[in-house]
Design a protein around this nucleic acid. Structure first.
Lengths: 330, 330
DNA sequence: CTGTTAGCGCTTTCAT
DNA sequence: ATGAAAGCGCTAACAG
């Protein structure tokens, strides 16, 4: 079942069938209709691999993420795929599992499959591994890392805004002794959040009371860090965490200690993963819209693929505080 | 950059390069080494589309799921992809969003991309839509629906086992008034769970006290159903739900009413989504291993693709109760 | 063991 | 507006 059979049935050449499939203007409506009828009758689907081979465009996009089971990613993946499918593009996904080795494997797969572009949405991207892409001039979009160039774009996330909103909120609730639980310090994005906390403290004239514990962006780390905070002679009255998983761990530690949120502690997370509003109490947190991120990344990638030249706008994703039940005034 | 340039550089024919790439035995080690060196130096990656075109095999698999943001799926997707990547296969994912129309779109994409096989892991599969696959003799694996044939296999999930284990557990805890909150009754898998509850009741001689509320496999439905149960003159002492989301909704309703789990109610979920152990208290639930499901589906698909004839074994995934903190004796 | 060559199904000049 | 024909990069006979 191929274009030849369609051509035979419609009594035209394969070129005309091809033109019809590709909506070329130069086909007489009557002829096109005959071709379409034949396609319908034969249940013909064009072979994308043959098309790719000759056109050089695969209509496939790569999407590299850290781990689909990390609740940050599914929504991102879904929105990105929706965009792609709407435009007739396919998405192939790469899970790096936070490993540089697997990352380079992902990139290799993308190159082999001749993707038209790739979005690297991991927080731990390693610039060195991406040379394979740049060398081949494959359009690439990064999150948080990398720079804008002819074949790549960087989506910046404004972590600071959300953190500052969280601190303003806590400040207005009379909290003056606020702690921060970080993510892993080898992550650029975790360092940015930590820095935003520090600058917020400064803004409110609280710099001398900086209270920081290290977490790992996982539940366990949050629980341990919170334990340390609770053991302090003067524990903080409020805690901001580098992500929601950390906050969930902290919440557990607080409960474990027989204390309550928000009565004894105010707690604010970051990310707004889907489970954040299901905790007891529902977690006040900072939203980073994965949909917005996906839509922006896709648009940036498309622009790159279409080689839209000129200094494109900076892509930047805002973050915002969303109030739920885990904070209260003292 | 293609096989020709590699051939030129290694001073062999393209056929020899192809043989080397494909680990054909008929290449003299020395020649193979020279070819590999050239590949390395030129940074050559074979074009998969050309390979597909000539070999007829795309080394791509389709995986159709309902919705990647439904916590049931990410783990399934990850395990399936892991298997595939290990064997040099790519996975393209289709989200049906529970819509037959989108399902048929997914299938069309799979056919166009010439996938070697497809795993349909939605619970709401519509047999009619799949004819496109069967007509083209594309190996297909289903979950819960469909039958075993030359080009398709069915993975059965033993929902009843887990439900019965849950009921035995509750019975041993002296619960005699047990309710069940169902999923949407148009889902075969939800009907099976409901039937398992009924048969369990019968087994324990409790048939005359069947107490069933309808849910929708979402949080809201669970909350509403639990509200109805709480409003009863004689509320049950324990509740089993058709999935974890329903249990989380029920948990919220119980808390809302000022009651506690497991003190006032015992609660058991189903699925063991990743958040199930993060609730307060951690949810006792029935595990359906997504990893096992993915591994089995992948193996079944591979067997089909290799055309391993003969009446293959029935594929069946067990389910088991996992004890956590939401049940207690009365 | 290695080379030559005919396609795989499609798009795209170049003619007509 | 349509057709003929030359490849896209690779694999798989078939020859040697």
């Amino acid at each position: 079942m191929n274009i030849k059979e369609v051509a035979k049935r419609a009594k035209v050449s394969t070129a005309t069938v091809s033109r019809t499939i590709n909506d070329s203007q130069k086909v007489k409506p009557g002829t096109a209709a005959r071709v379409r009828k034949a396609i319908e009758e034969l249940n013909f689907y064009p072979n994308t691999h043959a098309r790719t081979l000759v056109s050089g465009r695969s209509r496939m996009l790569g999407l590299i993420i850290s781990d689909i089971t990390n609740p940050f990613f599914p929504e991102l993946v879904k929105s990105f795929e929706d965009q792609a499918v709407q435009r007739g593009q396919e998405v192939i996904i790469g899970n790096t599992d936070y490993s540089p080795k697997r990352m380079s494997g992902c990139i290799r797969r993308m190159v082999e499959r001749k993707v038209d572009g790739v979005a690297i949405m991991t927080s731990e991207a390693d610039a060195a591994l991406v040379t394979e892409l740049t060398r081949r001039n494959i359009p690439t979009v990064f999150m948080d890392t990398g720079t804008n160039s002819a074949h790549s774009a960087n989506i910046r996330i404004d972590y600071a805004q959300g953190i500052h909103e969280a601190m303003d909120h806590l400040f207005s609730l009379n909290h003056r002794h606020i702690a921060f639980i970080t993510g892993p310090m080898n992550l650029e994005s975790a360092r940015i959040r930590r820095a935003a906390f520090l600058s917020g403290l400064k803004y409110h004239g609280l710099s001398e009371r900086a209270l920081i514990e290290n977490g790992d962006h996982r539940i366990e780390g949050g629980a341990i860090a919170m334990g340390n905070l609770l053991a302090l002679p003067h524990p903080p009255t409020a805690v901001i965490t580098s992500n929601d998983l950390t906050a969930i761990g902290a919440l557990g530690a607080i409960h474990q200690a027989g204390l309550k949120v928000p009565d004894d502690f105010s707690l604010i997370g970051f990310d707004d993963i889907s489970f954040a509003h299901l905790t007891q109490p529902p977690l006040t947190t900072v939203i980073l819209s994965r949909t917005q991120l996906a839509v922006t990344a896709f648009a940036a990638l498309e622009a790159l693929i279409r080689k839209e030249e000129g200094p494109h706008d900076d892509y930047i994703i805002p973050t915002h505080l969303v109030l739920r039940g885990s904070t209260r005034a003292i």
